[in-house]
Design a protein around this nucleic acid. Sequence first.
DNA 1: AACCAGGCTGCGC
DNA 2: GCGCAGCATGGT
Length: 315
Amino acid sequence: MNNYSPLRTFVFMCAMIQIVKPAIFSFRECLWFLDRGYDDCLFRISDGTVTKLIQLGTEPVLFRIREAGDHLQVEILKGKLSEEQVPQLRDYIIEWFDMHQDLGPFYTLLQKDKMLQYMPKDFEGLRLISIADLFEALCWSIIGQQINLTFAYKLKRRLVEAYGTAIEHDGHVYHLFPSPHILASLSVEDLRPMQYSQSKAKYLIGIAQAFASNQLNKEMLLALPDFHSKQQALTAHKGIGIWTANYALMKTLRLAEAIPYGDVGLLKALETHNIIKERTESEKINRFFKKYKGWETYLVFYLWRSLAAPAFHKK
DNA sequence: AACCAGGCTGCGC
DNA sequence: GCGCAGCATGGT
C-alpha cells in the first residue's frame, strides 16, 4: 500500500476528527442560536457541546463536537466510520456551521449601517446554521408555515419520534429525521392525531412522495443553472410557496438571494430596527436588501438572531 | 379571549 | 399578474 498514512490511521482508530476554526467564527454563538429556547429534537446541546445522529452509510453515527483551542474536536460516540466516511463527516460539520465563508465583507457592510452596526460585535462569529438535507429542510419549513415556532417544534418532534430512527446513548435518545420513503407511505389520517392540519399533512406526504420517487432531490436542484429555476423546481410542488422554497434554498444550498419574503420574523426585525414602519413596504425592503448583495440571507439570519429573547443576549 | 404565528391555495378580477 | 378570503390549530 503506497498510500498508507500513519496519521490517518491514527485518526481513524481514535475516532477523533479535528477541524480548524476559520477566522470570525464562534462555536459558542452558533450553539447559542441552536439552543435559543426552543426544543429541537434533532440534536442535543450540553456543556458547550452539541451531539447529533447522522447517517453516512448504512449505520447511523452519533457524534459530539466540542471546542478545543483553535479547532473543533469531533468525537464518535456510537457507530463506526469507514475511512471514506471520516472526510464526509468533516465536510458535513463544515457545512452545518458554514465554516467556509469569510464573514469579513459582511461585517464591513453591517458597520456602515447605523441600525445594524452593533451586530458584528454582539453576534460575532455567528454562522448561518444550515440544514444539509433538502427533504428535512422542506418538511421543516412546511411544518413551520403560519404557526408559532414553539408549536412547530412540537409538531416536528412528534413526527420524528414516531417515524425517525432512534438510538439511545448515555440515557438520551437521538433521532434521525424520517426518510422520504417512510413519510411517503403515510396517509393524512396518520398525522392528524399529531395536530397536523389537513393541508399540512397532505403537503408533507406529497413532498415525501416526490423525493421517494426521485422527482426531486438536492443534486437535481444543484444542477439547475440559476436561482429562478431552482426556486421554480420547488414551488412546482403543492405546499411550497416562495417563502418555503427560499427558506430551503437558504438553509440547504445557502444561497444569498433566497430571501424568505413575507417572513413574519424578518418583518418584525425590520420594524424593530426602524428599517420599515409598515409590513407592506416591499419596495423599501427591496432597497434595503440591495445594499447587502451577496449577503442577503446572512442578514436575514442575523435579523432572526436579533429577535431572540433579551435574556439570552450575551453581554 | 382576542389576536397572532418563521404561509399556501384557489378564486375573482 | 394581483389582491384577498379562507384555512387550521396551538400560544400568549
